[in-house]
């Protein structure tokens, strides 16, 4: 495998200088004259690469430095130190050829124009990206088809629901068929169906164009469905970079066993930690190394109707990661 990575980040750091003042009127007046500032290290020493066509989940709690990193990758912020290369370009130079090949979607902010039909906002992006008419029409029709936008195009944005608007936002951001996608919480605030819709679409776009996707999301369902690989940062530092399955193995020393018994209210506390007991269905947590033994004992000792062994939910694993 001698491909060049689409994204390379080396020892990346970003320090913000933020004004600081105490609360109260006196402090506010004082700050007019003497401005105290404080350095905040949003990103400290992050290194990773992303290969072409990869979909990587970029995870971390609020304030971990995800958005700061995405902004440095898309050329919006200047790194304090370290190297970044995206498609061979240094993002901060905001080279036109570079910008033509990337896109940034921010779930919390909109670029579509409020009062005019969606289709006209698309036209605006066509003009900005200088897309030739046939190429533009082709991509637009494809996106309209994949996201089911036909009925939305003539409507002004203000008349759309949040989910519909997000579908249009995503489409508008992809009209120039970018190679690298930076998606910052693209499904935030959407209902489950719409989340799934956007998620499936991102996966489809990735397959169709072999596009590279770096995605942040608070919804683990997004990550599980799309990303084979996750990068986790916390307090601006890299905590984990690897396959989602490996994350579970490494950070969760437990497995969950769900048993359905033929008897009511059995006490299984000497087999493992009882998480829930509803009627004759009991969920246990056991250390990974003991899974086989416990399963064997359960089957031998009790009238088991059904038994399943599973990894704990990914949310739980992530929580585990951040607590270490």
């Amino acid at each position: 495998m001698a491909t060049t990575p689409d994204i390379t980040i080396q020892n990346l750091r970003k320090t913000y200088v933020v004004p600081e003042r105490d609360t109260g009127l006196g402090a506010a007046i004082k700050s007019l004259i003497v401005r105290k500032t404080r350095d905040v290290e949003a990103v400290k020493d992050i290194t990773f690469t992303v290969e072409p066509g990869e979909v990587v989940g970029f995870l971390g709690p609020n304030g971990a430095g995800k958005t700061t990193t995405l902004k440095m990758l898309s050329g919006l912020l200047h790194p304090t130190s370290g190297d970044i290369s995206v498609l061979g370009y240094t993002p901060f130079n905001r080279n036109k050829e570079f910008l033509q090949q990337i896109t940034l979607v921010m779930g919390q902010r909109n670029q579509l124009i409020w009062d005019i039909p969606v289709g006209d906002s698309f036209e605006r992006n066509r003009a900005i990206y200088r897309l030739p008419t046939d190429e533009y029409n082709h991509t637009r029709d494809e996106l309209v088809d994949l996201l089911d936008l036909a009925e939305l195009l003539p409507k002004p944005v203000r008349n759309l629901s949040l989910g519909e608007r997000m579908k249009c936002e995503v489409a508008a951001a992809l009209l120039h068929r970018p190679q690298v996608l930076f998606l910052d919480e693209p499904t935030i605030g959407l209902d489950v169906t719409m989340q799934r819709r956007i998620r499936t679409f991102i996966g489809e776009y990735n397959k169709r164009y072999n596009a590279t996707v770096l995605l942040t999301s608070h919804y683990m369902a997004d990550v599980e469905a799309l990303c084979k690989r996750v990068i986790i940062i916390h307090h601006g530092q890299l905590l984990f970079d690897g396959a989602l399955t490996e994350l579970v193995n490494r950070f969760s020393p437990h497995k969950t066993i769900v048993v359905d018994l033929d008897i009511e209210q059995a006490d299984l506390s000497n087999y493992g930690d009882v998480i829930t007991a509803e009627g004759n269905r009991i969920t246990l947590r056991v250390p990974k190394s003991e899974t086989a033994t416990v399963t064997g004992r359960l089957l031998a000792d009790l009238p088991v109707i059904d038994l399943t062994v599973a990894d704990p939910p990914i949310e739980e694993v992530i929580e585990q990661v951040f607590s270490t």
Partner: peptide
Amino acid sequence: RQGTLDFTLTKPRDAQFL
């Protein structure tokens, strides 16, 4: 103020012109 300038700055055109 709203941070939407980011969309303009990631466009392949001169930002002042846009």
